[in-house]
């Protein structure tokens, strides 16, 4: 399945069914991150419920230094 993650086309295995699977696939489960799925911002407890489909647009963001 192809997803557009952070502006890039990325192929992920079909075992990735939910946003939480995607986080695990990239080994990011221990990171502080926030996710936008098809332009809708997901609360953390929604990651296991949000289904991922071919062509979905996903933004994975984090906190970085800033003033």
């Amino acid at each position: 399945m192809e997803l557009k993650i952070n502006g890039e086309i990325v192929t992920v295995p079909d075992t990735v069914q939910h946003v939480s699977d995607l986080v695990e696939h990239f080994q990011l489960e221990k990171r502080v991150l926030m996710i936008e799925h098809n332009e809708s911002i997901l609360e953390k407890d929604h990651h296991p419920k949000a289904e991922v489909k071919d062509g979905d647009k996903i933004e994975i963001v984090q906190f970085v230094g800033g003033g």
Partner: peptide, 16 residues
Amino acid sequence: TFTVRRMNIFEPSQPN
């Protein structure tokens, strides 16, 4: 204070 930016998903151990 912090700011929000895209994460490099291909570097899971990137320090933050």
